[in-house]
Design a protein around this nucleic acid. Structure first.
Lengths: 210, 210
DNA sequence: TTCGGTTTGTAATAAATGTTACGTATGTGA
DNA sequence: TCACATACGTAACATTTATTACAAACCGAA
């Protein structure tokens, strides 16, 4: 079943030989919602390929403060881990399962080997880097140029897009943590967005109208 | 003379054959201080390798507002251009010569070709990505977790480090643009840093003491 | 239904940053 | 040396965001 998923999610970019090898050496793992897949300062020994679900990539500082950088979706890999694996080998980010998720974990040594031996893997890595690079730029943009109310709306819209549903079941506190601000600020701004008829709020639920 | 520089700055990472090819197909360019090397929305047809000098990589929004992302030093390449070249082909950043600088510009098609044919080039690209990735993370950190006074001091220290001199000849307005704030704010905070004996201010000059 | 924990609303206040306005210093070239 | 542009200092004020505190609403379990 997981084998099927590997084919399904990766055959468009990785060649048959490689997929076969992935099935041999990869470790299949399941994570439940809110499980921490990798944490800051943990050593990275595997490259994750996401088969299903969704993973939140966060930057955490020393005091446990977080900031959402981007989401990982099925068919993608975490470029952070690539960058980390090659260099310091310590994770600089935290990865948390947003919903139940299945992963294949590839031991780093294969990542290196394949990079020089398999063209489709090279392209995959390169493409991943590009995608994430642009997403990091986007994040920087957001932080540097946007006010909190804009950031909040953007965050909500993005979540709605990824979830394929207009309604998010989330509490204000969670949003505050992702955007690295306080719950009070989020509540205030959500109320404001509701007054502008852009969202509808109820307990543990936010309906996005725009 | 520029040929010498290519060897000097890149022989530790790129092999002889490749360097020879770079000398054949690369275009040598000189930029003076404050020259715009590439601007937002310009199409990217070349990968730059920096031979000497220093280049400021900025993110610019629509209204001409800027934010410094990182500096490029001799022996490095701009990973942004890699990411841009492969994808949208339009630059998402602005590159400005910080001081007089010499570059070799490699046409994109070679970048692709070498990526699959030359191991040392592959490693170079991969290493560049790692370095920049970490720097982008650092930038995100700074924006998300630090206050303006901390950001300012960090900016000054970084510049001092890159310049090999305790004294920066820069005006408050320039700093304000790099950090995406206003001149008044920078002047205020600089004064504050001076009172804390961390810097010494004079016209067009800042001496960093810590 | 009642208790108790969780989630949300809101006010009051503080701190950080942004904006406007204008005065003062400093260097340059006529 | 005088006029002028540029760079800097600073006050007053506006806006945005953070913090604290507490009340109200909601929900599930006993």
């Amino acid at each position: 079943m997981t084998n099927e998923l590997v084919h399904q999610k990766f055959h468009h970019i990785l060649d048959e030989t490689l997929i076969k090898e992935i099935l041999e050496v990869g470790l299949f793992r399941h994570f439940s919602k809110d499980d921490i897949i990798i944490d800051v300062d943990q050593p990275l020994k595997y490259i994750p390929l996401l088969l299903s679900g969704s993973i939140k990539i966060l930057r955490g500082d020393d005091e446990g403060d977080d900031l959402l950088i981007y989401f990982l979706e099925a068919g993608e890999t975490c470029t952070m881990s690539l960058a980390c694996c090659m260099g310091t080998t310590k994770s600089k980010i935290r990865a948390v399962a947003e919903i139940d998720s299945y992963l294949v974990m590839i031991p780093v040594e294969y990542m290196q080997k394949w990079f020089h031996s398999n063209e489709s893997w090279r392209n995959f890595i390169l493409e991943s880097y590009q995608t994430r690079f642009n997403e990091m730029l986007e994040t920087i943009d957001t932080l540097a140029f946007m006010k909190m109310d804009e950031r909040l709306l953007k965050y909500l819209k993005n979540k709605v897009m990824l979830h394929d549903s207009n309604t998010l079941d989330t509490k204000h506190q969670d949003i505050a943590e992702d955007l690295h601000t306080s719950r009070v600020v989020i509540s205030r701004l959500l109320k404001q967005l509701e007054n502008e008829h852009k969202i509808k709020i109820s307990r543990n639920k936010i309906e996005v109208l725009v």
